[in-house]
Amino acid sequence: MTLRILAVDDSLTMREMLRQTLTEAGFDVMLAEDGVDALHRLPDADPDLILTDLNMPKMDGFGLIDAVRKGDVAPRVPILVLTTESATSLKERARSAGATGWITKPFDEVSLVSTIRRVAAV
């Protein structure tokens, strides 16, 4: 079975990039534009992993993680955050918010895929 990934980013460029990279790597990809959009899509998407940007309008990545963790749709789904900062404080914040791990942008396909494989499996 293919790993299903819900990728959340407000930037169309990033969404397209994620869609292409992840699709080529053999994953099933669903996209959302922000935290609110992601929450709406979550039940149908039923992802094995959520990949989310942090800085987004409407509901940011922290808000999304919190809502997923406290919700009843897939509270224990692995969530990786995408961040341009390598700052440890952001990682700490992500971890305490309930993120499973993080990926620093810009990323390459190899590190993206290997990080996904580290935290999610079908």
Partner: peptide
């Protein structure tokens, strides 16, 4: 034991 978590329950049809 799951909390109600209103934030997650998707309101159908209101998404973008």
């Amino acid at each position: 034991s799951a909390p109600p978590a209103a934030a997650v329950s998707p309101a159908a049809g209101t998404g973008p």
